[in-house]
Design a protein around this nucleic acid. Sequence first.
RNA 1: GCCCCCAUCGUCUAGCUCGGCCUAGGACAUCAGAUUUUCAUUCUGAAGACCGGGGUUCAAAUCCCCGUGGGGGUGCCA
Length: 432
Amino acid sequence: MENKSKVRVRFAPSPTGYLHLGSARTALFNWLYARYTNGKLILRIEDTDKERSKKEFLDEILEDLKWLGMDWDEGPFFQSKRLDIYKEKAELILKKKLAYKEGNAIIYKVEKGKVIKINDLVHGEIEFNTDEIKDQVLIKSDGSPVYNFACVVDDDSMGITHIIRGDDHISNTPKQIMFYEALGLKAPFFAHMPLMMGKDGSKLSKRHGCVAVFEYKEQGFLPEALMNYFLLLGWTPKDGKEIVKLKDAARKFDIKDIGSVQARFDMDKLRWINAEYIKNEPSKMLFALLKERFKKAGYVKDTVKEDYALKIIELYKTRAKTLEEFIPLTECFFRDDYKVDEKAYKKYFTDAESKRNLEVLNKRLKAMKEFKAKTLEDTCRVVAEELGIKAAKLIHPTRIAISGSTKGAGLFEMMELLGKEKVIKRLEKILK
RNA sequence: GCCCCCAUCGUCUAGCUCGGCCUAGGACAUCAGAUUUUCAUUCUGAAGACCGGGGUUCAAAUCCCCGUGGGGGUGCCA
């Protein structure tokens, strides 16, 4: 790979909406290639559409990019601040008589009957006939440049060597190549990656669920998991290991390996990947991420008992697929008015016998000095034996009593964590 | 309509560049079993695909053509 260090790629969002999943994916591949080649990633804001561009969108996009771990080396540059340059370049083309004026607009005259070849790094050779292309506006009547033109001027002046973007730009490419030629410039390499589609194969839209990056942030997806998922859409690690950290991927990623097939967004696989990240994340890190959510749920105040929270997280990190899922799962550790599963309650607390059994257990628990998982289990099993029943007969109802649910972490760990006082209080409440 | 991209299990894909090693491999999801106090984790197993039709060839998932299907473009949007 000659001149690796000379690679310059760019990510160029327009602030006309929130950062879209597809854009995030494009950003990822540019970022990876920049890091892989030890090149530069340039951030450019394409805000020539005065009507639709909004400051709030820009702020959100920048914030989301950072959250995703995408850092850039230069920029952001704003097209809206470079209007004079586009005009100047367009006038150059006008002077060469390759364009004409229509009112204030400058329009490029397309020469018919020519074949334009693109050597795409993903798709290979693609040919276009200029007969299919109409004359192209370079500068609109209001003086602002049209996308395809601004793009060419910027990519050249910013020294972009590789343009990695979505397939939806394939048919823009011959137009842009004409502009490069008109300006006497050399076109960069192009790599068009297939678009990400919705579950049913149609265009990914709100109809399929959330399409904005911030919504995934809210739902409790980890940025690395999201990016890991995007990476898997169209790129396969050679060793078959699908959980790939961004840093490691940057070491292995090459444009040549991008697949040429459009992929569908699959929530199930994303959730699996997210779960893998949660499971392997140190509890301390998870707590930092979870703190705000716990506060919002009213589980903790500003003074948080970190040790307590850490133990809870440790118990539930194999059970939550998203950060948000920790909230319902851990309710009984933070509140006394946790929800009780009605069906389960009926199942275990209808006959008098099981109530009597629980009362025996409760008495024994009250007498315990050390309220530890190990001793709790011993006690429980001894009581069961004395009563001549299976330990499960005590375990299940106790679980309902202290947590309201039939599911959850190991019962004895839960009891130890809750502490003697709460466990007994909850047992007595339900036995009443 | 016209132009362009694409086509392997339900989904993401490996294999296709240089045809035989493919009775098509892996992952998610699904189902079954093991472990376990439940759930989850973990482990084992099952089921599941080369879009259709023509060629080329001794031989095609792999090459060619035609259909079909999906996607994109065809804006003084980006």
